Amino acid sequence: MGMSVLIEAANDRDAEQILKLQYLCFQGEAELSGDYTIAPLTETLAEVRAEVRDTCVLVARLGQEVVGSVRGTVDPDGTAHIGRLIVHPRMQRHGLGGRLLAAVEGRLAAERDAARYRLFAGQRLPGNLRLYRRLGYAPVATEEVSRHLSLITLEKEVPTSLAATA
């Protein structure tokens, strides 16, 4: 490839690429659960644009191409909700998911006073669970969404070094 992947804040022009990549990345999860009506597959371009405008959305760029993305919000009690972590299939297994997650964690702690991070993962996606556990997340709850799908809630506290600088 010869180019570096840059992680930066998404802008309105990225919304369409984010939506297309999200659709590509969530096909496997939909297939595993037998449900193609999951939110990442039914979200509209207008909804993605609103999230880019109103929340913390980061993209990973390879040249002009969006090859990854992640989103986060922080609620009033300081819980950062992280979601829609996606990496193009050809870019997976090179640490980009971990880089995106670390970048959004840093932004949410520094810019939005996050005290803890929370995310969800399907129990049938062991690679995602391994990544989150390796990065310090611990399971705190499991919810059966359907006969084929359980979501595991994982959390970790913001490290004191990040909380002190926020």
Rank of each mutant, 00 (worst) to 15 (best):
A60M: 00
G83D: 04
T37L: 05
V145E: 08
A10S: 07
T142G: 06
D75V: 13
P126S: 03
D12T: 11
L19V: 09
Y36P: 02
L58N: 07
T165P: 01
V145S: 00
G127P: 09
E47A: 09
V158E: 06
Q27H: 11
L58S: 06
Q64R: 13
L96H: 08
L32K: 07
T165Q: 14
S4V: 08
F120T: 03
V57N: 01
L135D: 14
R130P: 02
G34E: 02
G106S: 06
A163I: 00
I82Q: 00
T160Q: 14
Y137E: 02
R61C: 02
T142Q: 07
C56K: 00
A115N: 11
E43W: 03
L131K: 11
Q64H: 10
F26T: 02
P139F: 01
G95L: 02
K20Q: 13
Y23H: 15
Y23V: 11
L96E: 09
Q92P: 00
L154V: 14
D113S: 09
G72L: 02
G78F: 14
G63M: 13
T37M: 05
C56V: 03
I38T: 01
E65Q: 15
K156C: 08
A110F: 09
V140C: 13
S4H: 13
G127W: 08
T44E: 07
D12E: 14
Q27K: 15
E111V: 01
